[in-house]
């Protein structure tokens, strides 16, 4: 065997071992999934757990099919999803915008520092009742909940990353006679994209929290309302269905952010 062929076969072996590892990972992931749901079903049927409280996958699936057919699930899902997406986008944009203002005016950032700390430490969902009274028990106040929960932390994290951009990039732009806006647009903002994306990932989760709590409080529509209603009438199949739907769509949103990350961050790697 020539040395080149030898390298080729070794490389193939390496690829094969990589594939084998990947298959095992997928296999165990599937095992966990199956064990969890079949265990849940079995435990519920054998009455090891209280089926009234913990329901069962088969019941949840049945309810899922009926609610798809009568269209009520789609209506609730549509509400919650649009509220979350709006809240998420609003929170991230306003947070980044506030961070830009703070970067622009160091004086303002010094003045606002203690207030940001207070606002950040405050549990934002506690503002829920005030928002609902101020904006009305509607779409708007729930979107506001979804947004407010992520604005301050986005502002703080993104502002920190703006400040940490290597000053030599700014120096390069200054020698070309760049103004402050050009410095922001050409260096500060693109250099902070990785940070902004990672706050997006955190904000996806936060916005779901804000929106679900908002729907608990407003109690008229949406997946959060499904949970609170199921709880009140002791229909836990409804609660479980809502939780599973939320899990699926929160994951989808997270994946979309990752897709955006790959599109936005290009540097040849």
């Amino acid at each position: 065997m020539s040395p080149q062929e030898n390298v080729k076969t070794l490389h193939q072996k390496y690829i094969q071992s990589l594939n084998r590892e990947k298959r095992w990972v997928r296999f165990y992931q599937a095992v966990i999934f199956l064990v969890f749901f079949s265990g849940w079903e079995l435990a519920s049927q054998k009455q090891w757990i209280d089926p009234l409280i913990f329901s069962a996958p088969s019941k949840v699936w049945g309810l899922f099919l009926t609610k798809i057919q009568d269209g009520t699930l789609m209506v609730d899902l549509g509400y919650t999803l649009s509220e979350t997406v709006f809240g998420f986008i609003l929170g991230t944009f306003l947070g980044t915008f506030l961070a830009a203002i703070l970067w622009w005016s160091p004086m303002l950032s010094k003045i606002s520092d203690p207030y940001l700390v207070v606002l950040n430490s405050m549990p934002k969902v506690a503002l829920g009742p005030i928002l609902i009274v101020a904006l009305g028990p509607s779409f708007t106040s729930i979107v506001a909940m979804g947004a407010i929960i992520s604005i301050i932390i986005t502002t703080i994290v993104v502002y920190t990353s703006f400040k940490e951009v290597d000053p030599n990039y700014i120096k390069v732009l200054q020698t070309f006679g760049a103004n402050r806006f050009q410095i922001f647009w050409e260096a500060i903002l693109p250099a902070s994209f990785p940070t902004i994306i990672s706050t997006l990932k955190v904000n996806v989760g936060l916005s779901w929290v804000g929106v679900i709590v908002g729907e608990f409080l407003v109690s008229s529509k949406g997946l959060g309302y499904m949970i609170i209603y199921g709880f009140q009438v002791f229909n836990f199949t409804l609660v479980m269905l809502s939780l599973l739907v939320i899990a699926v769509f929160a994951t989808v949103m997270y994946q979309l952010v990752e897709l955006l990350e790959r599109k936005l961050i290009k540097n040849g790697s």
């Binding site: 030599n168 120096k171 050409e186 994209f193 290009k266 540097n267």
Partner: peptide, 17 residues
């Protein structure tokens, strides 16, 4: 003066993006 002076730094500081 604007753009009349060029400045080259210790490292290249090319913008990676």
């Amino acid at each position: 003066a604007e753009n009349e002076i060029g400045y080259m730094l210790q490292q290249d500081y090319l913008f990676p993006w």
